[in-house]
Nucleic acid binder design. Sequence first.
DNA 1: CAGAATCTTGCACACCGTGCAACAAAGCGT
DNA 2: ACGCTTTGTTGCACGGTGTGCAAGATTCTG
Lengths: 214, 214
Amino acid sequence: MLETTDNAEPLGRREQNKIDTRRAIVDAAFDLALSVGPGSFTVDQIAERAGVSRRTFFNYFHSAEDALTVRTDGFLDLALEVFGRMPEDEPLFDSIIRAFTETTRMEGLSQHGELFRMASTNPDLLRAQLHSWERAETRIADGLRARLGAGASSLYLTALVGSVLSCTKAAMRDWAANTPESAEDSGQQLEGRILSALTMLRDGFSDSPVAPAA
Amino acid sequence: MLETTDNAEPLGRREQNKIDTRRAIVDAAFDLALSVGPGSFTVDQIAERAGVSRRTFFNYFHSAEDALTVRTDGFLDLALEVFGRMPEDEPLFDSIIRAFTETTRMEGLSQHGELFRMASTNPDLLRAQLHSWERAETRIADGLRARLGAGASSLYLTALVGSVLSCTKAAMRDWAANTPESAEDSGQQLEGRILSALTMLRDGFSDSPVAPAA
DNA sequence: CAGAATCTTGCACACCGTGCAACAAAGCGT
DNA sequence: ACGCTTTGTTGCACGGTGTGCAAGATTCTG
């Protein structure tokens, strides 16, 4: 599983400690969610497992669910970054599709699947995830504005980005729901679904496919 | 402002009382949100203003924010109902567009605008609203499945519905942000934006408009 | 090394959300 | 009209949440 930050930058102890505790908290929250189920544990348990005080947890996150959306935020940030590296003369939808499909190749996928499955049984976690996608929507809209120029209609931008993220979300949900624990072609499964959903979007959902093509 | 239920059905006192308290709670919550701002009041205040006990409030809603999404739920339910009345031989996107634009004509709009504006400054309310749209997504997907037949791909359905709702959401957000308090043509403003966004979606966002056309 | 800046922690406190049991109100059969 | 059942309301208790605050520990800076 590749992580996104291999930078061996000269960090001060302050920043390194913060990164470490943050990681410890996120890992502790994720482990707990996996073992006892989302919503079935307290902040105190996360803090204890992470080796920090309850108060410190709240210095980093507003709620237990927020600690579980870091992965989602990271995925979407990475997608935005990848999108930013696309050639500007490429057709817009080609860039979008490539940005998301390529992003799936460099991220630890299993956790995302678990996250979606957990969210389907836990309203609070679901809300936190929806919020995560929502925040990404504005960031990506800003990124798109930079590419399309400031003259682009705001409604056009938000509608487009919202639709793209909805399709990606739908693809990941479908993938999480229908792909067994850890299939060997899990990555291709997801990539194919994202490609499929975004292609539908590009073509205006003109043809209604009858075959799931799973 | 037209309300959706003018049914003078013979309701028992039990059901009528429940409807009344529910209304009282929703109205109290909305009034409080308008006057002191979302997130700046407690459940006790809602209960007191609604004339019920704190405990009773929690018999109806899980949180203060949930009481504020009833309007949103109602709007989306109405849209689904209207969509269900569209002729089946009509092109799909025509039905969708008409369903939403016509729905805006029969709903009290000002409250929806306020809701969107409030959500933009209150994370918890935003999450509740996103959840409301998310719930509607599954309901509408089921409705669409009934129309398209059981053979339609699940991914196609969820991607389509998600995109449609994203565009509608974007239209309402844009409208709420850019339409002054109570313009006289507020309804047309919203309707035009929804039509615009859904048309973009139907056409695959092929042309990027430069003029906001506000 | 001393002082400044920053991070962690414990504490207090208001608020949240729910199980439970007592109570009240509405429906129902006679 | 009268009990009996069903359903809704209320108060209480209790564990959990989220945050301001101030004291203490850790890191940075000169």
